[in-house]
Every structure is written in C-alpha cells, then in structure tokens.
Amino acid sequence: MTAEHIDINHIAALCRIDLSDEERKTLPGQIDAMLAYVQQLKAVDVQGVEPTLHALELSNVLREDKPGENFPVGTALMNAPEQRNNQIVVPRIVE
C-alpha cells in the first residue's frame, strides 16, 4: 500500500487557512499518519455497494413556498465584524 504525502501548502490554500511555520512542520506528519490509518478501508469489498449520504432513508420534502417571518436587517447584521448603512463592509475587491 503506497503512503500518501499531503501537499500542505496546496490544501491550506484550498481551505483558506494561513498556517504558521510551526504548523507547516507538524501538520503534514500528523495528516500522513491519519491517511495511513484510513488506508485500511481499502481492505473492504465495496463492489456494488451504494454510498451512504445519510443514515436514514430521506426523500425530499417540499413545503409550500410562502413567506414567513424574517430577521430585521439590524438583527441579521448584529454579528458582522464591520458594517455601514445596513451593509457589511469589506475591503475593495475590484480595482
């Protein structure tokens, strides 16, 4: 069984997390160990087996599309780190 080596910089970029130099050193070894542990799943015969997305058989239940109560804007924005005129403030995105 081939061992997997994670490209930590690539994956950290995909999930938008900056890592410290220390984390860049310690994380790959820990992740590799977990991937090696997970390799044992290859021993299971899964030919013709359907993947489980949810434990219970669920079908899509549609409800009537009618407006309910919503938050006032002030409530919806009460946890925004920066806001102005009922809008969330972010740094300039388009030059």
Partner: peptide, 11 residues
C-alpha cells in the same frame, strides 16, 4: 477516500 468511506458506511 470520501466515496469509499461512504460505501463502507453502508456496510
């Protein structure tokens, strides 16, 4: 990984 794990979950 992910799809295989979901299949073993079925097992």
């Amino acid at each position: 990984y992910y799809v295989r794990a979901q299949k073993v979950r079925t097992r």
